[in-house]
Design a binder for these strands. Structure first.
Length: 486
RNA sequence: GCCCCCGUUGUGUAGCGGCCUAGCACGCCUGCCUCUCACGCAGGUAGCGCCGGUUCGAAUCCGGUCGGGGGUACCA
């Protein structure tokens, strides 16, 4: 049997990292088994669904590189992949369920149900099955009152057990899972109907989703039995409930937490492979002594049954570290390629990049690529090379700290040492500066080069000084040293 | 309340009855390297929620207990 999995987000709000992790596990599972990854949009809630959110989810998936075989923008044999366009399918399934006695019309109001529960003293919340066996007279009476029924699924007697892919055997006694509504009184289908029906129609074989859906699984399993009997479903999928991604404390990471927003990682200069690697670590590990791996390696090794069932706290520091490890895995050329959009956005280089800037960038990136941990860090480190002299400015705090009286003297000495250099090269600059400041003035290297660095690059933190000066060129370097003297 | 899930250092995990005086990573602390930063290197810190049981032997199996989480909707 071919593996078919899906991810089915609701396009409401900004996509969450939990969604990414779920998508990743589904995707990796599909790829590992050579199966199909289906992408379906659950936009039945017209009030909350937005096109903006839908766009964000698509952009996110594209950025992450999690490609789907069926779904929006690519189509597929089970189109449409938007629930908002599948109304007839749900109406049909609902009708067949009603006719089959797997479901029944229910005329009760919530108040009536609550009142009855109060009276009976039942510990079980939810519907009590009052309308299960209504007579025609009763139905007519309700109708005469102008009541609009919802349709409820009739839960079978006994217990429901399944082998959860991540949790092992799970059992619910159906006496604790009440008959549930499949649609609203106005006929609008609910998630309880729509989600399993789509999974059935799309022939999903494995449902990997968040553990918040764990307790709705017995209901869906029962529905599946009905759907199979009605010829709507072919097989019942296997279920695997992934642990939560938690935030601080013991709460689920919520949209209110800044680190919950998936797209923010792209904007903050994370690598998609870094984010994905980190998220995979939340519940899964590739080996006992390793936690940095590529997507390909994950696909090769991934098995849902290795996912642990306990919820994981999201740790930004570790996410940063994993991302940094992936940065170090990339070649300088690759980093240059990825950093370019940020350099353009920050105005460090123009768009398109001029030939001169492109050449400078090629020379400078080797110095920068190895010292940044996020793509966004390149701009600050490279800015001094690309600004025109009129716009060049020293960082006020750094200048105050290092270009004091003593610092200015050091810069003066540096200028003198370097002014008459025959060749403007890293080696020559280094030799001149070392002999003048270290040997000549008897300074410690860090003391000697600090002020010079601020004068030339504008900051205390920069690429290596001598290389930077060579790249900057003689005239601009000397100009900046002179400018620092006031 | 009731049902279900979860429980290894601060965090994520490895562990599937002896290899565990519990491994790895992040974090944190010390050093080293070094023109700043970043990297790299060496070392340190800290854990099996608790109680019983099974067993020659338990982080690993069983029971209970406590704690946390989720569900209990004409939300998804």
């Amino acid at each position: 049997m071919t593996v078919r999995v899906r991810m089915a987000p609701s396009p409401t709000g900004s996509p969450h990292v939990g969604l990414v992790r779920t998508a990743l596990f589904n995707w990796a599972f599909a790829r590992h088994h050579g199966g199909t990854f289906v992408f379906r949009i659950e936009d039945t809630d017209k009030e909350r669904s937005t096109d903006e959110s839908y766009r964000a989810i698509i952009d996110l998936m594209r950025w992450l590189g999690l490609d789907w075989d069926e779904g929006p923008e690519v189509g597929g044999p089970h189109a449409p992949y938007f629930q908002s366009e599948r109304g007839e399918l749900y109406a049909d399934a609902l009708q067949r369920l009603r006719e089959s006695r797997f479901a029944y019309d229910c005329y009760c109001t919530t108040d009536e149900v609550a009142a009855r529960r109060m009276e009976s003293g039942s510990k079980v919340m939810g519907y009590d099955g009052f309308c299960r066996e209504l007579t025609e007279d009763q139905v007519e009476a309700f109708l005469a009152e102008g009541r609009q029924p919802v349709v409820r699924f009739r839960m079978p007697e006994g217990s429901i057990t399944w082998r959860d892919l991540v949790r092992g055997e799970v059992t619910f006694e159906t006496e604790f899972v009440p008959d549930y509504a499949l649609c609203r009184a106005n006929g609008d289908p609910l998630y309880t109907l729509v989600n399993p029906v789509d999974d059935a129609l799309m022939e999903i074989t494995h449902v990997l989703r968040g553990e918040d859906l764990l307790s709705s699984t017995p209901r869906q399993l029962a529905l599946y039995e009905a759907l199979k009997e009605l010829g709507i479903a072919k097989v019942t999928p296997e279920f695997g409930h992934l642990p939560y991604v938690m935030g601080e404390g013991n709460k689920k990471l919520s949209k209110r937490d800044p680190e919950a927003h998936a797209l923010a990682y792209r904007d903050q200069g994370y690598l998609p492979e870094g984010l994905l690697n980190y998220l995979a670590l939340l519940g899964w590990s590739i080996a006992a002594d390793r936690d940095v791996f590529t997507l390909e390696e994950m696909v090769e090794a991934f098995d849902v049954t290795d996912v642990v069932p306990n919820p994981a706290r999201f740790d930004l520091k570790k996410a940063d570290a994993i991302n940094a490890a992936h940065m170090r895995l990339l070649s300088t050329d690759e980093i240059t390629h990825r950093v370019l959009p940020f350099l353009k956005a920050d105005g460090v280089v123009g768009d398109p990049v001029s030939d001169a800037d492109a050449r400078l960038l090629e020379l400078a990136m080797p110095l920068v690529a190895e010292r940044i941990n996020k793509l966004t860090e390149a701009s600050a480190m490279l800015g001094f090379l690309f600004v025109d002299e009129a716009s060049f400015a020293l960082d006020p705090a750094d200048a105050e700290k290092l270009l004091d009286e003593r610092g200015t003297e050091i810069v003066r000495a540096a200028l003198a040492a370097v002014e008459g250099l025959a060749t403007w090269s890293t080696a020559a600059i280094q030799e001149a500066l070392q002999s003048a400041l270290i040997d000549g003035l008897g300074l410690k290297p860090r003391v000697a080069f600090g002020p010079v660095r601020v004068a030339v690059t504008g900051k205390r933190v920069s690429p290596p000084l001598f290389e930077s000066m060579e790249l900057l060129g003689r005239e601009r370097s000397l100009g900046r040293l002179r400018a620092a003297l006031g």
